[in-house]
Design a binder for these strands. Structure first.
Lengths: 212, 212
DNA sequence: TAGATTGTTAATCGATTAACAATC
DNA sequence: TAGATTGTTAATCGATTAACAATC
């Protein structure tokens, strides 16, 4: 059941997409689906779907296909869903606030339980259900709460130092929105969301079309 | 000079990273760099850097390496920077506002020139330097302004319809933050930023470590 | 010039696709 | 049972790495 070989980033990128599409199929009342029908829907090959899923187990049945809701649940487990993941957000700027307000995260078990800033004018203010705390309180807060994920929504100049502070206090998962690469040790998982790079990729592809 | 073969998504992802690192090198006064030194800094192989760059041209010099600022400028051109790109944002929620406030975009030539919402309570309000407009005004606004990029920061339920509206009015670049796949025709470029999927990838990798 | 380092070709590695026996 | 579709092995394709002649 536990994966033998390394899972490629390509597979990691597809797993949440399988999960999303299966969720949509459940919503529309579809109970079973073949790899071929799912491939048409998702615009990938059926072969790839079967290969991907068989990294984790044989979830289908010959001659039948896949049971949509049971595959949905299995992929949910593989993605580590189905349990609560506590998140703290560093930085209460627009992006931090946007993250704090995203209802969908809570719905998936990702609970934002703390928000921190260093600006005294902002500390104490309320953002949704959270009260912004002083960044100095992070070590205490982590000791008293089960913080799994730290979201870095502060400027580049502060990001490295604050990420290291999180790691020193036992946080092993960093969701990094700052425009730099964080190297925090082998046991720390860093997931980057770099909006500037995303915009540049868009721009590149547009420029490429014009060049031919 | 114009690329002969298809550029892989892997290369597209690395280009903005080259650009960022070269910018940082300029800031620290470095004038030339070898593929080997850049590879140590970026944690990729020197061979890969040379292969990537040679998709676009021979920017280096044997025995010398690469001139940092000229390579920076060349990659900037390749990424379509060095000209103004006008963006409109659909949706003035937290995410839309976060995008509108990002100073770095403007600094790179990405100008946010309009922001739209369908909520009458919000229309007319100011977000930074922008006044939120009615979504019904989008066609007129596009006719009167050179809108290159449409950012979709509205709920999934509205996203498809609004993206199609943009495309019908001539916008060919969509920056999509809604949690769905947009299929808008071969000549339309869609760049997706899916925060939920990003969080699931983080969660997956954490779960993987625990399973071993 | 000699040393360094590129641009590019060749070798390797890994991911995707195709094929088909197993089996529901 | 016959038909359908998986799980899995083999073939192909593409990306990464290694090697080295070209050359600054």
């Amino acid at each position: 059941m536990s994966p033998k070989k390394k899972i490629s980033t390509a597979v990691i990128h597809r797993l949440p997409k399988y999960y999303r599409h299966l969720g949509e199929l459940i919503d529309t009342g579809v109970q079973r689906i073949s790899s071929r029908d799912l491939s048409l829907r998702m615009r990938v090959t059926a072969s790839q779907i079967r290969q991907d899923l068989n990294h984790f187990g044989g979830f289908g049945q010959q001659g039948y296909g896949y049971n949509v809701s049971s595959l949905y649940n299995e992929i949910g487990k593989i993605l580590g869903l189905g349990k609560i993941h506590n998140i703290i957000i560093l930085g209460s700027g627009n992006l931090g606030q946007a993250l704090a307000h995203y209802q969908y995260f809570k719905h998936r078990g990702f609970h934002i339980i703390g928000m921190f800033d260093k600006d005294e004018k902002i500390i104490g203010k309320e953002v949704g259900e959270l009260k912004v705390m002083d960044i100095d309180q992070i070590p205490t807060f982590i000791k008293e709460n089960n913080v799994e994920i730290g979201a870095i929504a502060i400027p580049k100049s502060e990001a490295k130092r604050m990420a290291e502070l999180l790691v020193e206090n036992g946080v092993k998962q960093i969701w990094n929105f700052a425009h730099l690469d964080l190297h925090l040790g082998d046991d720390v998982i860093v997931e980057n969301v770099n909006l500037t790079e995303s915009l540049m990729r868009l721009s590149f592809r547009a420029a490429l079309e014009h060049r031919g």
